[in-house]
């Protein structure tokens, strides 16, 4: 319990949201699985989308968030 409460300022201070934090935790838990389940769970971790911000009614160049690029 104490470790959990101590961890709160940590990730918040690092500029993470709760979502990022829980995702990292989830990824660690998935990493603990044994193999047939592990690759199955890894398939549920794939991230891919393109995001573009708009300024003055014009889209800026889209940036792609993808697992292939992150690695």
């Amino acid at each position: 319990m104490a470790s959990t409460t101590a961890a709160v300022p940590f990730w918040r201070a690092a500029g993470m949201t709760y979502i990022t934090y829980s995702n990292i935790c989830a990824s660690l838990v998935r990493g603990c699985l044994k193999d047939p389940h592990r690759s199955e769970a890894a398939a549920r971790e794939k991230v891919h989308f393109a995001i573009s911000k708009w300024a003055n009614g014009k889209p800026e160049k889209p940036s792609i968030r993808s697992d292939l690029l992150e690695q």
Binding site: K46, F49, S52, W54
Partner: peptide, 15 residues
């Protein structure tokens, strides 16, 4: 902002 190509892989919570 707008977001596209979300459904390229099957949807999952992480994404």
């Amino acid at each position: 902002m707008n977001i596209t190509e979300v459904q390229k892989n099957p949807l999952n919570y992480t994404q």
